[in-house]
Amino acid sequence: MKYSQLGRTGIDVSRVCLGTMTWGKQNTQADADEQIAFALDQGINFFDTAEMYAVPPTPETYGKTESIIGNWLSRHASRREEMVLATKIAGNGLSWVRGGGDVTGEAIIASIDQSLDRLKTDYIDLYQIHWPNRTSPHFAKHWPGMLDFSGVATAQHSAEMLEILQALGECVKSGKIRHFGLSNETPWGINEYLRLAEKHDLPRVASIQNEFSLLHAKDWPFLIENCVREDVAYLPWSPLAAGALSGKYIDGARPEGSRWSFAQRNGLFRDTEASNEAIKAYKELAEANGLTASQLALAWVDQVDGVTSTIIGATKMSQLEEDLKAFDVALDDELIAQIGSVFKKYPMPY
């Protein structure tokens, strides 16, 4: 296993981060136990969860994933130091989470205590804002004209971010969290947190996790350049585009128990004609080079300059084993060029 430094934290994280959002819905406690043990044995030290999980998010599944991890930690307390554990506070819009309200300083402090209780740990290595209070160009809202940037309340948003930072600072001082990160953010969001942290001597943003894959690479190059120049770790999530790049949903297939067989909070916005054609082309390239479609897609994300650690998830051990092999693959120049040709044909298929 290879490792990279998490921003300026001094923490080395595995190039693979094990995502856990299916634990508590598609996966049981026993499944999670097996995945955690296997991941640690393979050298993975980075684990990502959220208070909102499991997914799809519902009042019944809220907090279940953290509780599953906590159950494991309660039985393996001696292994806590082997793990870099990341979780997230949910943003606004979920009626069963703090009434659907914004992330505030008060919410930060309360939710950290609740996460610590569910996780059965004294500290969280990386605490992340799952999505900003303002509407951001994520979850299919990245097309021109969908958001109004001229009419935003910049001073209000900045004040909210300062309040969040101050609460995070209190939690760092008390030892409840070690570092904080962002998720589903933009270059402006990164830079405003950096500016506020420097101005008020508050914790510096360590990382950002955004959706990034062969089907959705809008963060390249501008946000990733921002991360590299400011030493903010870039953590792609959904590198398989919610499983689509595995090829299992080609031409409308819906394997029983797969993620797309469940109703999705934002709908199946990744399921487009262009995506379907792009996935077929990538799958053909992969198989011609002795790889699975998933391995090609994951190896490509891993070799993108600026990527720190890629967040993967699996509902089956066979998928996890297959996916991990991708991080030992070195794509040669010819194959990268062939991938690039497909990418240019389908640069933003959803």
Rank of each mutant, 00 (worst) to 15 (best):
residue 256 E to H: 11
residue 265 R to A: 15
residue 1 M to Q: 12
residue 52 M to V: 15
residue 309 S to H: 06
residue 102 D to E: 14
residue 330 A to P: 08
residue 112 I to E: 00
residue 248 K to P: 12
residue 153 A to R: 14
residue 114 Q to S: 10
residue 168 L to R: 12
residue 292 T to Y: 09
residue 23 W to C: 00
residue 305 D to R: 14
residue 42 Q to E: 03
residue 25 K to V: 09
residue 161 M to F: 08
residue 292 T to R: 10
residue 271 D to H: 07
residue 116 L to G: 04
residue 240 L to F: 03
residue 336 I to C: 09
residue 207 S to G: 09
residue 294 S to T: 13
residue 118 R to G: 11
residue 15 R to I: 15
residue 214 L to T: 07
residue 325 K to N: 06
residue 217 A to V: 08
residue 49 T to K: 07
residue 130 H to S: 04
residue 303 Q to D: 10
residue 259 R to G: 06
residue 156 Q to M: 07
residue 108 I to P: 04
residue 83 M to R: 01
residue 323 D to E: 12
residue 180 F to P: 01
residue 89 I to N: 03
residue 261 S to R: 12
residue 164 I to G: 09
residue 10 G to T: 05
residue 288 A to V: 04
residue 247 G to H: 01
residue 38 F to V: 02
residue 338 Q to M: 06
residue 130 H to K: 09
residue 194 L to T: 11
residue 187 P to W: 07
residue 4 S to D: 10
residue 185 E to Q: 06
residue 309 S to E: 00
residue 326 A to V: 04
residue 252 G to Y: 04
residue 102 D to P: 01
residue 151 G to E: 07
residue 297 A to E: 00
residue 101 G to R: 13
residue 212 F to I: 05
residue 134 R to D: 10
residue 276 N to F: 05
residue 31 D to P: 11
residue 110 A to Y: 01
residue 319 Q to I: 05
residue 342 V to W: 09
residue 166 Q to R: 14
residue 261 S to W: 03
residue 281 A to N: 09
residue 129 I to D: 00
residue 224 I to T: 09
residue 112 I to L: 10
residue 101 G to F: 05
